[in-house]
């Protein structure tokens, strides 16, 4: 029993830092796989007795894989656990590990994209933008940007670290932690905050333009309405912005 391999916290610290460049070799053939394999090098070095065995294990992780980059930590932690169990003889073969990794792609992408790209990122940026607009003093504006970076990166770095640890603790069971309901509360808070800041931005732009020239406010509102119409017709950002610019130029001619 004493010769059983056990991954240490230090191994996960090294994996964590490697996840910060997880997408460095993102490619259209295997997507995130090189980053995953690169991040698992400390795990392979700890578990496998020689270079050949390490290379064999890491080679298996070069097949197709994708995930929201921060949420990939859940997969990395779980894979580390399963590889540890395989080396210790608790899992036979590698097929189950590979199949499990493939099965995680869907939930990791779906939950992670919605959580970070669809909620936390816009809400954090809207906070920074609100401060940058409302504060007159430069210091206030810069502190708002700092607040934006903190509000985004605390959950970001927490998920990277927690994902690794939770994945390692739960192994095959990690998929239970990847249900969208598990992240619903934080997501809801950020969603509300994002909407609130959006409202503050709208009122700032409306009031400040009204104070100068009411036509500025009309152009601003027309810009919003055009974006809504163009979005509904799936026209994309370029056409939306260019059309608003053209409209502003036409109004400017009057």
């Amino acid at each position: 029993m004493s010769d059983k391999k056990k991954l240490s916290v230090w191994v996960f610290v090294r994996v964590f830092f490697r996840t910060l460049i997880l997408q460095a070799v993102w490619n259209f053939k295997s997507l995130l796989s090189v980053g995953v394999s690169f991040a698992l090098v400390p795990v392979a070095k700890h578990l496998c007795k020689d270079k050949q065995e390490q290379a064999k294990m890491l080679r298996r992780h070069l097949y197709f894989f994708n995930s929201q980059p921060y949420f990939a930590s859940f997969a990395l932690g779980a894979i580390a656990r399963l590889e540890e169990e395989r080396i210790n003889g608790q899992i036979e073969g590698t097929e189950k590990i590979d199949a499990f990794k493939n099965a995680l792609i869907g939930p990791l992408g779906a939950v992670g994209d919605l959580y970070f790209w669809g909620t936390i990122k816009p809400a954090s940026i809207l906070l920074g933008l609100t401060g940058a607009l409302y504060f007159d003093a430069l210091l206030g504006k810069l502190l708002s940007i700092l607040a934006m970076l903190i509000v985004f990166n605390v959950p970001h770095l927490r998920i990277r670290a927690k994902g690794l640890w939770k994945g390692y603790q739960r192994g095959y069971e990690i998929y239970k932690s990847l249900k969208s309901e598990k992240f619903a509360r934080i997501r809801f808070i950020y969603q509300l905050a994002g909407a609130f800041f959006m409202g503050m931005i709208i009122s700032f732009l409306l009031v400040t333009t009204l104070q100068v020239d009411y036509i500025q406010s009309i152009v601003f509102v027309l810009g919003i309405l055009m974006a809504a119409v163009f979005y509904k017709r799936k026209k994309g950002n370029y056409l939306t912005v260019i059309s608003s610019v053209v409209l502003a130029l036409i109004i400017g001619l009057i």
Binding site: L205, F220, M226, A227, V241
Partner: peptide, 10 residues
């Protein structure tokens, strides 16, 4: 202001 409006709308 049109650009800001588009950005807010999007």
């Amino acid at each position: 202001f049109a650009i800001m409006g588009s950005g807010v709308g999007l």
